[in-house]
Design a protein around this nucleic acid. Structure first.
Lengths: 151, 151
DNA sequence: GTCGTTGCAAACATTTTGCACGCAT
DNA sequence: ATGCGTGCAAAATGTTTGCAACGAC
């Protein structure tokens, strides 16, 4: 995974700038996140995936690392009303893309990258004098697979 | 509040259809919700507001009622990453309006009613074969008041 | 030696559940 | 008398925190 190494190196620099070290624990967490970028992992899931690699780690460390990465805007903390926070890598350079499709039937979560909100953001900034920095958009509905199953 | 009485009556019928009774506890909760429609109350806040009306109630009842109302789609359960679920009355007839502006500075939450997503939903349904039933859209940013405070 | 980081266990906060009781039909 | 609804307390869940120990510089 050449791609992963590059991303990791870049993150390492971001940590350095912010006066954090890339410890083995943090690296292990980041590797899990990078290799499961589409999966919206929870803290507990990350914890278990790291341990599966025969790497011993404490759950508190996972939480602390995720909090730090969120603060540095390397991760997005997202919430799908399933009782726990989930974490999402911020795509390189993308500031305003990246929305979610949550299937209410199978619980699956898909990501879409299109920027659907350009117009909406213009309206909000203009009409509500609100300075937008970020957003969360999730559509609830039925995914293609589940629709097929019905017919 | 004539308006409130009408809304309450309507909800009572919805409950009946679904084989639930409008008990005094449930009515008290609904009144609090209707009279604080803009406030995104949490379960605990609702609990305390009901008790302030000299009405004795158990916290578990509040949770159970909120869960039921959410299931009946009378309420929306929303999550602003502050550690607890908040509840929002569904506006009469509105299916697809109603978004949020969360100020990252003062923590305030404003509601906006414009439908900003018509076009976006068309795109998603067409390009991703996803049948949309609902959505959650929250903008994170700085509200007008906080912007003023800076200058 | 200093200081950031870790792991553990305890604390914490929110939400859910088991159960006995109450009340309306 | 049946069954839904309630309140309480206990449990469960997800997350945070205090603290002693560790390790890099």
């Amino acid at each position: 995974m050449e791609q992963t190494a590059v991303a990791l190196q870049k993150i390492k620099e971001q940590l350095h700038v912010a006066n954090y070290k890339l410890t083995p624990q943090r690296e292990a967490i980041l590797l899990v996140l990078l290799e499961n970028e589409k999966d919206h992992l929870s803290a507990e899931e990350i914890y278990m995936l790291v341990k599966l690699q025969n790497f011993d780690i404490g759950l508190a460390t996972v939480y602390r690392t995720l909090e730090m990465l969120t603060e540095l805007r390397i991760l997005d903390k997202v919430n799908f009303n399933d009782g726990m926070a989930r974490y999402d890598m911020r795509k390189d350079g993308a500031k305003h893309f990246h929305h979610h499709l949550l299937c209410v039937e199978c619980g699956g979560i898909d990501e879409i990258e299109e920027d659907l909100l350009m117009e909406a953001e213009t309206i909000v900034e203009r009409d509500y004098a609100f300075k937008i920095m970020d957003h969360r958009l999730t559509f609830h509905g039925i995914c293609h697979t589940c629709q097929m199953r019905h017919s």
